[in-house]
Amino acid sequence: MTDLRIGIVGVGMMGADHAERVARRTAGARLVAVCDPDAERAKALADALGGVRPIGDPLELIGDVEVDAVILASPGFAHAEQLFACLEHGKPVLCEKPLTMDAASSLRVVEAEHKVGRSLIQVGFMRRFDPEYAALKQLLDSGELGRTLLLHNVHRNKSVPATFRSEMIVRDSLVHEVDVARWLFDAEITRITVHAPKPTSLGGEGVLDPQLAVFELANGAIADVEVFVNFQVGYEVRCEAVAERGSATIGLGSGVFTRAGSQWGGAMPADYRVRFEAAYDIEVQRWVDATRRGEIDGPSAWDGYAAAAVCEAGIASLGSGRPVDVDLADRRKVLG
């Protein structure tokens, strides 16, 4: 079987990381093209990796006959147009979150993919591929601990740019826990409440950080999430599932966890690329393997839409301070 020829749209921090991953660490794949609004950055990356073409226009890259599949690491506001182009050209696509910027356009993407007649879109919720999260999912699904009742999550970044606004904390950070809760409970989120205490003085002016969100799910379970994007210490992601006969926690330490000299602790990663390096590697490798089989093997366009709908309600709750019901389309009517 020939290698999957991949083009990447957007080669900022995330896209450049994917480019290096595809070019050097992904079996059965070959990076053939990159595109970025910063043409010099795209050319420098293409030259550094060798044998890669910089293409000026993202839609040109998507339609290129020498590109078999696409990774979208472009800004969320560009995703809708680029996803529709991938569907038009029949190109499998791994789309970094968010699927699109709002629930309505995400639903249109789901409907358009359904009309194509096959699944082409996978959303980059990479935590599903993280070995710790995967082990937690396996444990909970086994029933060994009984029915899962509660989920506690912590999501902290060392810092973010001053341009990272309150609603972005919901749409770009909290969205990961939205997908984690839906996936671990195998149920939709029906209501969300986002609380904002007095914000840190170390964040951007007017930014509500940290935030505390509470999800209510269709199966009666509840999940809470603390998101703090100017934590100053490092990148920390934890998840504890509380079940009828016990609990399970992941994310307690990174690397060697030591106890010595009346001290205990371990290394804390600087950012998401370190904490979830293995998850990204596994995600992209499985996407490539599944694409070569004509399948997808991860979060679907529907998962991206459902997350967008929850985040949209979350932003409304952040503004009002009240619970907001999630307006989710009937999956059976949309997908048949």
Rank of each mutant, 00 (worst) to 15 (best):
L145K: 07
G294P: 01
V52E: 02
P75V: 04
S300G: 03
A241N: 02
G319K: 12
L208N: 14
A187Q: 09
L99G: 01
T291H: 00
G246C: 06
V154R: 03
V324R: 10
R292F: 04
H79F: 09
I55H: 02
W302H: 10
L217E: 11
G12Y: 03
D64L: 10
N230E: 08
R156M: 07
Y305C: 01
D297Q: 08
V160H: 11
P92K: 05
S74F: 07
L151W: 04
R259L: 15
K333F: 05
L83F: 10
R286L: 01
S105C: 05
L61N: 05
G15Y: 08
P75R: 07
I250S: 11
I169V: 14
A134K: 01
V288C: 09
V334E: 06
P58E: 08
Q232G: 05
R332G: 09
S317L: 10
L149N: 14
L83N: 04
V175S: 05
V237A: 02
I222T: 10
A112T: 14
P299C: 02
E226R: 15
A278C: 15
S159G: 11
G319A: 13
V9K: 11
G203A: 10
A213C: 13
T249D: 14
K91I: 06
M126D: 01
D102R: 07
M126I: 01
A103V: 12
R275G: 08
K333M: 12
D17Q: 09
V175A: 09
L212T: 06
I62F: 01
D3Q: 13
V178L: 09
V67E: 03
H89Q: 06
E226N: 15
S105P: 06
E312T: 14
R238S: 12
V11Y: 00
D327L: 10
P199T: 06
I71L: 13
R24Q: 08
D209F: 00
A46G: 00
V334D: 01
F164S: 03
K43P: 03
W264A: 15
E240A: 08
G265Q: 07
E88T: 05
R30D: 13
P199Q: 04
E40A: 10
T249I: 12
A196F: 12
M126N: 04
T258K: 06
A243W: 15
E312P: 04
L184H: 01
D47H: 07
G298E: 00
E81N: 08
D289P: 03
V233A: 13
K158S: 09
D303Q: 03
V256T: 14
I8S: 02
A73K: 08
S105A: 12
E81C: 05
V110E: 12
A134H: 00
T258N: 12
K158I: 12
S105W: 03
P299G: 00
P210Y: 02
E236L: 14
S300R: 04
V225N: 05
A48R: 11
E226F: 11
P58H: 05
I169K: 05
D281N: 14
L45K: 00
E96A: 04
F228I: 13
E188D: 15
P75H: 03
R322W: 13
L4I: 11
V70N: 02
P323G: 11
L61M: 12
I315P: 04
L208A: 07
L184A: 02
G63D: 07
E113V: 07
L72P: 01
G124P: 02
P98Y: 03
V160I: 08
D57A: 09
V180K: 05
A248I: 01
H155G: 05
A16P: 02
V67F: 02
D289S: 06
I8C: 08
A80W: 10
Q122K: 00
